[in-house]
Design a protein around this nucleic acid. Structure first.
Lengths: 165, 165
DNA sequence: CGCATATCAATCGTGCACGAGTTAATCGTT
DNA sequence: AACGATTAACTCGTGCACGATTGATATGCG
């Protein structure tokens, strides 16, 4: 098959379309590369997390709680850049799975505190191998990963600032 | 507020949790960085594309067709790494919007050919400014973007290979 | 105190992404 | 020609992500 599909074709349309020269050819490249990398991570996590019955976003929440138990919905949302309308159903699913408990705060009745159950704490053991698997699957050295992360963090910070102007 | 939530806290849990040393501390970092960058891009595109009534994945499909009109569902899926069960409803929405038409292939009745309508072609003009906006929002130089894209492409290729072993 | 305002969380509706399963058309082999 | 295997597309169900809206609690200010 000679119809070679690469990201260039998908994201580089601006050049062919608007004749703005090679400078704009990269614009969509980077977002498409991020989009595709995210899809690839999602699929990898799906296969790794399927055994323990978590989705990737659920795993991120559990990871937060394993690191420090007892957080409000807002704190979790801040950490993961997610809104209540995403988190509330997700936390309810984790509650249904018996991994966390959701309890109204005594002092401030508006707040819901999310804590690990014994089962939720125990699950950490089964998830131990996952970070190592992910790191190996990237095929990158520690130095490369560190560097790539730093660049992505810069990108993300810029996007958030620029998007709100 | 001293409760500074950063990606480190969300994705670096492996270290504190499993005491495996600094080497595993980065494992989840990179996927989280990609996850957050993707969220940031999605939100940026949402604000930019809201005016012309497209979502980001829809924009990617339109970009493909603007570059070369007349593609099968399979070709679009290959280009975007998406399955039929994602694309079929999406293409139907684009059809409902009057931007594309979906027609069974005469030679091979299994195949559905997707082509731009006049309205779909015309929409390209309104979308012209978007790549430039995105590029500026990244706050990165062309060299930096090019480099970052290359690294992400490598990462993605590795993930796909490693995920299927 | 009393009332406007802000905050926390939840609900509803839409769209993306994928696993699983289905249907219909084509291909390959005999 | 016939029939099993493959391929293209679709449907259904689940979960994530977000805009818009709502409700209930807490805070601030006159």
């Amino acid at each position: 098959m000679s119809d070679q599909q690469n990201p260039r074709e998908a994201a580089g349309a601006a050049n062919a379309a608007t004749q703005q020269g090679p400078d704009t050819e990269l614009d969509d490249f980077i977002c498409f590369a991020v989009y595709e990398s995210n899809l690839a991570f999602n699929n990898l996590y799906r296969s790794l997390l399927g055994d323990i019955g978590l989705t990737y976003p659920q795993y991120l929440v559990m990871t937060l709680l394993w690191r420090r138990d007892g957080r409000t919905v807002r704190e979790i949302g801040d950490a993961l850049s997610l809104e209540y309308n995403t988190l509330t159903p997700m936390l309810k699913r984790l509650e249904t799975l018996g991994l966390v408990s959701r309890v109204r705060d005594e002092q401030d009745q508006r707040v819901v505190n999310v804590t690990l159950t014994a089962e939720g704490t125990a699950l950490q053991k089964k998830a131990q191998a996952i970070p190592q698997c992910i790191a190996e699957a990237t095929g990158l050295s520690l130095t490369e990963l560190k560097d790539l992360k730093a660049r992505l963090d810069t990108l993300r910070a810029n996007l958030r600032n620029g998007g709100q102007e």
